Simulated assay, not measured.
Amino acid sequence: MSTFFLEVITPERNFYSGEAECVIFKSIDGEMGVLAKHAPTVTTVNVGPLRIKNAEGKWTEAVVTDGFAKIMPDRVVIMTDTAEYPEEIDINRARAAKQRAEERLQKQLSQLEYMRSKTALARAMARIKATSK
């Protein structure tokens, strides 16, 4: 199968850099899969799982938060706020964050606070789901 060069970059580190056969992530329109020779596109990346099939055919899963992806026929660059492998996630911290976000959503919030709480809840849920596999 054809490959392309994939980079996943966060402000803290170069999370992934190498050849890939496929990458799958959540975008504003739902899950998006990218293969080599994809039409040039720029799209959002939403909180959720990131699945990478490397050049040897092995799948790797991670969790990413909001960002964007620049897709070209031979290269994909995903820039996101955070990216974590399941083994890097502190499950107790993720559960506590989920509980705090749910409690905040029960209160009357401004629109900005509501959106922040929804984002925090989505991030916590993605982390918990990634560690449960």
Rank of each mutant, 00 (worst) to 15 (best):
Q111K: 15
K98E: 14
V23W: 00
A94H: 09
S117E: 11
V76Y: 01
F25A: 01
K118C: 14
I128S: 09
K70V: 09
K37W: 02
V8D: 01
G30T: 08
I28P: 00
Q106D: 13
A122F: 08
G67C: 09
T82N: 10
V34G: 01
E102Q: 15
A94D: 06
A122D: 14
L35W: 03
I91N: 07
M79Y: 11
F5Y: 05
S132T: 13
P40D: 04
M1F: 02
G57M: 00
A36Q: 06
N14S: 10
Q111G: 11
L50T: 02
I91L: 14
T119P: 02
Y114S: 12
V23A: 01
E12A: 12
F68C: 08
S117Q: 12
M125P: 05
Y114N: 13
L121E: 05
F15V: 03
G30S: 08
A96H: 11
A69N: 10
A120R: 10
E7N: 05
E113A: 13
T60H: 01
K129Q: 14
A39V: 13
F68A: 08
S117F: 11
F68S: 12
A39D: 04
Y114H: 15
T3Q: 04
P11I: 03
I52C: 00
I71E: 04
F4W: 03
L112W: 09
A62Q: 07
L109A: 10
D74M: 10
A39T: 13
L35Y: 04
E113N: 14
E102R: 15
A83E: 04
K37D: 08
G33T: 06
M32R: 09
D29C: 05
A126Y: 05
K37I: 00
A120S: 14
I28T: 10
D66R: 14
G67I: 08
R95N: 12
S27V: 06
M125F: 06
T119N: 14
V47M: 04
K70H: 08
I78K: 04
S2K: 08
R100V: 10
M125C: 09
P49T: 07
I91Y: 09
T60G: 01
E21G: 03
I71N: 01
K118Q: 15
E12P: 00
M32E: 03
S17W: 01
Y85C: 03
A96C: 05
I28V: 10
C22E: 07
K58S: 01
I9V: 13
T131H: 07
F5C: 00
L112C: 03
F68N: 09
C22F: 12
G30A: 09
V64T: 11
K26D: 01
A36E: 05
R95Q: 14
A36G: 06
S132Y: 06
S17A: 11
N92Y: 08
K26N: 05
K107I: 07
Q111R: 15
L109P: 12
R116W: 08
V63C: 04
P49H: 04
T43Q: 08
G48N: 05
E56K: 12
A55Q: 11
F15T: 03
K26Q: 06
L121D: 04
K53H: 02
